[in-house]
């Protein structure tokens, strides 16, 4: 089933023509990997797909609904992880998740425990202020948030950044599980993704 489709997207940032007629389609259980050199527009494309940026031209469809007019249906089913996590350094991992996920869906204490344990943050680490966690652990909290939102589509910008080998394996397990459950993902990364070839689609953007 076709979930996300973009047709002929054009985006300008100042004088720079960032996206030049980009088209893509993502189906249930598929992962679209965005590659391309720095400045090719991978992050910008993700921001267009989640509605943070409005394209100058082109169309975006979510479940065949035209999102150019109404972004609500897409945003309610989308988890976005950009360069900035949206977490507060003064709050604990639990408090950050309870806030960001709680705005979308009711999360019980057990949900929070399970999501944090799934990314390897059990026990005291959940309750320490985020500033006391390493960059890799903070990225794991962000992945826990993406997973806990239980969104149909994941839009992830360099999700493997700062993660160690175990963290990367963990991310690939989460992604595979998400795709298996009928979700889809658009991932901007230069690293190879451990997703079955049948589920993986690649799109290379040119600078």
């Amino acid at each position: 089933m076709m979930l996300l489709e973009a047709r002929n997207l054009h985006l300008w940032r100042g004088e720079t023509h960032v996206l030049r007629g980009v088209s893509l389609a993502v189906q249930t259980g598929q992962c679209l990997q965005l590659t391309g050199p720095n400045g090719a527009g991978k992050s910008s494309l993700l921001r267009v797909l989640c509605g943070l940026l409005l394209p100058a031209e082109g169309q975006l469809f979510w479940r065949d609904l035209d999102c150019t007019r109404e972004l609500g249906p897409l945003q309610r089913e989308c988890a976005y992880l950009g360069h900035l996590s949206g977490h507060k350094a003064e709050l604990s991992a639990r408090e950050n998740l309870a806030y960001l996920c709680g705005l979308r869906r009711r999360c019980s204490s057990n949900d929070l425990d399970a999501a944090l344990e799934a990314v390897g943050l059990a026990g005291a680490a959940q309750h320490r202020p985020l500033r006391q966690l390493s960059a890799g652990q903070q990225r794991r909290v962000a992945l826990a948030r993406v997973q806990l939102q239980r969104s149909t589509i994941w839009l992830l910008d360099e999700p493997i950044a700062n993660l160690d080998i175990q963290g990367q394996e963990l991310f690939h397990r989460l992604l595979a599980s998400h795709l298996k459950d009928g979700g889809c993902a658009v991932v901007a990364t230069h690293q190879p993704l451990s997703v079955s070839e049948s589920a993986l689609v690649r799109l290379e953007l040119q600078a």
Partner: peptide, 13 residues
């Protein structure tokens, strides 16, 4: 600065 507003803007809330 920390991306909270981005998350709010795409949350559909």
């Amino acid at each position: 600065l920390d991306g909270t507003l981005e998350q709010l803007a795409v949350s559909g809330t």
